[in-house]
Design a protein around this nucleic acid. Structure first.
Lengths: 257, 257
DNA sequence: ACAAGCAATTCATCATGATAGATTCAAGAG
DNA sequence: CTCTTGAATCTATCATGATGAATTGCTTGT
């Protein structure tokens, strides 16, 4: 690791950067340069103290910066220390959720994007799912095989239906597409916890939604990309119309870590 | 702020959480509960130490955790302290970029999503831009009014063209849609710095791209949503074909903070 | 009025020591 | 021989107090 122990504040773009921040960036660069992989060991606290010539507190604050980003994990005990960590999907969702905390995202905003992306995902997944994956989707659908009795049951079914979409997103070969879709499913699932979105069960809409998903799985199994795309689009447009009747909710909370 | 000073590790879901993490979450909840806005003052270091009954180092590490997420900023001096901070677009880009660092995103993955989203953005922006915004887009386009002479010039023009898309994304009413598109523009711009994507200038493609964007701005000015959508789709598909000839690059770096 | 300089406030960093959790491995019970 | 148990040890975690650095705002001199 290079010299950095100079006493000066070492500006970069005019703004002063605190020592922990500079140490964190140095470690990030170090990981990139060496091409370290998740699980790989980073120098221990004591080594970093010696390496950077800084006090324990400063080094620890640097590690906290990296830990918050999900870039490192630390373990105690023999063989413990800091390790390169893969940023998890859930953490990325939370971090991105923070960005939208002060911005007002409406339900309709989410659906505008879903309508554009989910059919694309469905099409690209056609004929590419394993029997196990198809079976899992079918299993999720059994959660809402029967119409909901009350508002609470409707809520539970909607969350389960979002799990269906989230799982589909995880199957995507295109990690970017999968992440965007999974993030939106996460937001919608969180909203159902914090707001009463579902008032009166509507059996007709329930039946349409169930048929859509069943037809979608069948199209995916048959490798019919265009059918999958069409069904998903219709499914999304139906959901958007359903949501339009609900109040325009906005994100007003930090997502769970 | 509630009791938390108990000595026990206070598990939540079975996993033990370190004290700084617990303090950080408590502060997050505190911000949410009080509905604090960016710029609002948080208790000072000394107050937090007294409040939580923990040592300075622990509190400082908690603040680093929040700082890394962009949720707080701290300033020294009188009137200084910690403040609620709005998570910036750039920071959100960087945080999300970390998530994709160990996942292999191909250029084609990005374009699959762009083709689905950018036309949607273009359509929803038609007739909604101010004269100043339209003028700015025109100004960006002048950067590549003439065909590039060499590979380096081509690279510069491509980056400028991505600025066009990024700016368009910032104009979006739909913050979610805007962020996704801006993020992809950011990735592509970064890749051009780190990889030699652009080999031989192609004047015909350059002319098509220029005409597309000029036509797009005109459609936006006229409020012709469908024309804007069609032009953008064609523009994206052209860019995708152009990129297909290039090597399939993947993200292998941490994005700049 | 204006500006240079002083003083107060607050975070930033350092230094050191004690504590607690996790792992390993060997000894003992079954 | 296998499984439990517990001590040893390695590592991060937490605590305390002192010193440094940056910024604000007032004060004072012109």
């Amino acid at each position: 690791m290079t010299g950095l122990q100079g006493p000066g504040p070492l500006t970069r773009d005019g703004t002063r950067r605190s020592r922990p921040v500079r140490v964190a960036e140095a470690i990030k660069d170090w990981v990139v340069e060496r091409g370290l992989q998740p699980g790989d060991r980073l120098p221990g606290e004591a080594e970093l103290i010696a390496e950077f010539g800084m006090s324990k507190g400063t080094i620890r604050e640097a590690m906290r910066l990296l830990q918050a980003q999900g870039l490192v994990v630390t373990k105690t005990g023999p063989g413990g220390g800091s390790f390169v960590g893969e940023v998890g999907k859930d953490r990325a969702h939370a971090l991105l959720g923070n960005y939208f905390y002060f911005r007002n995202i409406s339900i309709d905003d989410i659906y505008q994007v879903r309508i554009a992306l989910e059919p694309e995902l469905a099409a690209s997944l056609a004929g590419r799912l394993t029997p196990e994956q198809l079976a899992e989707l079918g299993r999720i659908m059994t959660t809402y095989a029967e119409p909901a009795e009350d508002a609470e049951g409707e809520r539970a079914q909607h969350v389960a239906s979002l799990v269906f979409h989230a799982r589909l997103a995880e199957f995507a070969d295109n990690a970017l597409l999968g992440f965007f879709i999974g993030f939106m499913a996460q937001i919608l699932a969180d909203l159902t916890v914090y707001k009463r979105l579902y008032s009166k069960p509507n059996h007709e809409l329930w039946r349409q939604g169930r048929d859509h998903q069943a037809g979608l799985v069948e199209a995916l199994r048959n490798g019919d990309a265009e059918a999958a795309r069409a069904i998903m689009r219709e499914h999304m447009e139906m959901a958007r119309r359903l949501m339009e009747d609900q109040e325009a909710v906005v994100m007003k909370r930090f997502m769970a870590e």
